[in-house]
């Protein structure tokens, strides 16, 4: 097994509000192998976007990384100084933020916005070399070099999104984080953008973390999936395994709620609402909505258990199942501390 490019161990990100800490990410562990695609799904408020920001070390006060490690090729990003982190961003780990197309500067040409990123990383080039580089970066995302001379308003939503991908990959990072990269685009453009990300990922040999709530997109795109609920990972494993046989009740309901082409029938939603992460009660945060909740779920936080190879589930339903204690220490796993 190859060493993971990114390893997150027991990461905790809390927002310290006047009414107490909001545990947006609470003891999350996962690993990302080189050249693979990991999906991070969850509903609004599950902590998935906070997760993305934490990986970039871009959490702003009152938020803070309160524990854990983010190992990028063995280097712990949490320990880096601001200046050291600035050099890592874009260069080794880059993000396509949510609604990225609105993050382009409206009064600056596309070329300049790509060049800005390169300059910030002390890349010294002549103007001609720079032009060549910009054209190359744009060609990676299927855009014509002339797009460099345009302003954002001259581009369609899908093109703007591809420009943002181009900026994110301009320094060939090892890890690309895409936070709902297509949420504002229609299906045809969505497919083109996702295919662009996929192709770029393969060509650069980077690893991708796709964050979103659209399970359909995950099925089409990722290799591994982590389902987040209330700041913790409920279940993680290979996409196909999870989809064929979801083990956590939340994952099961999530998959059932999807409209499929077959059995056009009643649409099943998940009853209840997402938990407030402010002063969260002990126990499993899903127990109030869970159709299979046990008494123990109200009091004890379920730790992730490796039920199958490379498959972790945090649910008391499987407490009776034989847990391979040693296997939990495998690189895919991490110990979760009770809140």
């Amino acid at each position: 097994m190859t060493a993971p490019v990114l390893e997150v161990r027991d990461l905790k990100v809390y927002y310290h509000t006047a009414r107490g800490p909001v545990k947006a990410v609470d003891g999350v562990s996962f690993t990302l192998a080189p050249k693979t695609r990991l999906g991070l799904v969850g509903e609004s408020g599950s902590g998935k976007s906070t997760m993305a920001l934490a990986l970039m070390r871009m959490i702003k006060p009152p938020g803070r990384i309160d524990g854990g490690q983010i190992l990028l090729d063995g280097q712990d990003l949490v320990q880096l100084s601001q200046d050291e982190m600035r050099r890592v961003r874009l260069n080794q780990i880059a993000m396509v933020p949510q609604g990225a197309m609105n993050s382009l500067n409206p009064v600056t040409r596309i070329r300049q916005q790509i060049v800005d990123g390169l300059r910030a990383h002390d890349i010294k080039m002549t103007k001609r070399e720079m032009d060549k580089r910009v054209a190359e970066v744009l060609s990676w995302v299927d855009l014509h070099p002339s797009v460099g001379d345009m302003y954002p308003h001259e581009l369609s939503g899908g093109m703007k999104q591809r420009v943002c991908i181009a900026i994110a990959i301009s320094l060939r990072p090892k890890v690309i984080i895409a936070d709902e990269p297509t949420s504002a685009l229609d299906v045809v453009v969505q497919r083109q953008v996702m295919e662009t990300i996929g192709r770029v990922q393969e060509e650069l040999g980077a690893a991708v973390i796709l964050i979103g709530h659209d399970m359909g997109l995950m099925v089409q795109f990722v290799d591994r999936l982590a389902v987040m609920y209330g700041g913790k990972i409920a279940e993680q494993g290979h996409m196909r395994d999870i989809f064929r046989e979801p083990l956590h009740p939340y994952t099961r309901l999530l998959i059932q709620s999807l409209p499929k082409l077959e059995d056009k029938g009643e649409l099943k939603g998940i009853p209840g609402i997402a938990p407030s992460l402010l002063n969260a009660p002990p126990g499993c945060l899903f127990h109030v909505r869970c159709p299979e909740a046990l008494p123990v779920c109200k009091t004890v936080t379920p730790p992730p258990q490796e039920l199958r190879p490379a498959r972790l589930v945090a649910c008391h339903l499987y407490d009776a199942a034989p847990v391979v204690a040693g296997a939990v220490a495998a690189p895919v796993a991490g110990k979760e501390q009770a809140a």
Partner: peptide
Amino acid sequence: LLVDSIPWPDLEHSWGKNRIPS
């Protein structure tokens, strides 16, 4: 084109089969 582009949550119904002429 629209129907082909839907990301169906279905393992057997994958996007790759018919590439959209861009």
